[in-house]
Write a protein that binds this DNA or RNA. Sequence first.
DNA 1: CACATTTTTAGGTCAGTCCTAAATTTATGT
DNA 2: ACATAAATTTAGGACTGACCTAAAAATGTG
Lengths: 208, 208
Amino acid sequence: MATGLRELKKQQTRQAISSAATRLFIERGFETVTIAEIAAAAQVAKMTVTNYFPRKEDLALDYHETFAAGLARTVADRSAGESALAALRREFLAGVERHDAVIGFSSQGFARMISDSPTLTARLRDLHDQREDALAQVLAADTASAPGDLTARAAAALLGAAHRTLFEHIMDLTREGRSNRQIASTVTRSAHQVFGLLETSLADYAMR
Amino acid sequence: MATGLRELKKQQTRQAISSAATRLFIERGFETVTIAEIAAAAQVAKMTVTNYFPRKEDLALDYHETFAAGLARTVADRSAGESALAALRREFLAGVERHDAVIGFSSQGFARMISDSPTLTARLRDLHDQREDALAQVLAADTASAPGDLTARAAAALLGAAHRTLFEHIMDLTREGRSNRQIASTVTRSAHQVFGLLETSLADYAMR
DNA sequence: CACATTTTTAGGTCAGTCCTAAATTTATGT
DNA sequence: ACATAAATTTAGGACTGACCTAAAAATGTG
């Protein structure tokens, strides 16, 4: 299993489709480009596009697993004596330094493509939601909360809301044409402000 | 203008379509019922269904204006000396007593219809989002916040997250078959807990 | 009652999603 | 090395929701 050639070809096909799609989307907008055009540009059958990317949105937002699992992973991996809030803030600030796509960094063309498309903004909301659900599960397990107890879900909702707000802030600045470096500087302050808002509410929650 | 007969017929047509749709959706699920079937059941043309309800989801979730404007209205109407958080908590608790659909009360069939349909859960997320945006606008205007200041958006996100968490909690209990009276009793406690979480963060925010 | 306006209808186009069966390509066992 | 198995890609089509246009029907107004 996992033989080289077949796997290689699959990755090449996937990459060819993804590249063609991204180019067309940024050129002409997500909604006006059809799957048939993408297939033609990548020189594959329409069905092959669908096989690799079940929904059209997946062609533009291809990091769902990484994105959806991020917050839960950060909390699961936090060190002793660190609260969930502290771990998420630390990791977010590190992401700012990295200009990480997972917290909202991209290019002006990409940011415009997303905000110009109702389909893609809806899909992004969906990803934020999955991310929050995964976080809620980790928090519930970690704090051994009783079934029916809302605390973990509420905390996940608040922490998810903070991340989503900062994500949208980064996207706004990106659309305005600011450089990633300048955005990083601005958002570092924003992050301290937004996480600071939750400090008094969640400072002791899910302390390991 | 606004002559009686024409307006009456429109309302009747709208009601006939909505009733047929609701009945079919609860019987057989949102996704498997087609617009053509709804049109046939209501004895109108397919296009008439689309004219009244531009998206299929509107046939099941018909309170978008009321829903989306609710939080913003509550905050705009709050009395002197009341914070945004206090006003929203007060109004939510009143909604619990009313068994208000806007905060999540419905029937088991309705709740199941929604959670069984990805399209409808996505649409519900969208409504929560619009509601949060409207709240953010009111908060920004009311606190005279500088452009680029994230505080209003962050506060709206946290308050919206609280409402969404409680909404989902009510839907969960409804799906489990609890009576609205029992749900009201449980959710009153949940609301105090969830809004209490935000007390230390937002007690002084947007005090009028 | 004739005329203007609004609403409904019929018919069609288009794109995204899903399905099936066949053809092609790659891997594996003898 | 070759036959066989497995995985991938292809072609074609079905179905639905969304959208469009022109005509028909219903309603309100002078």
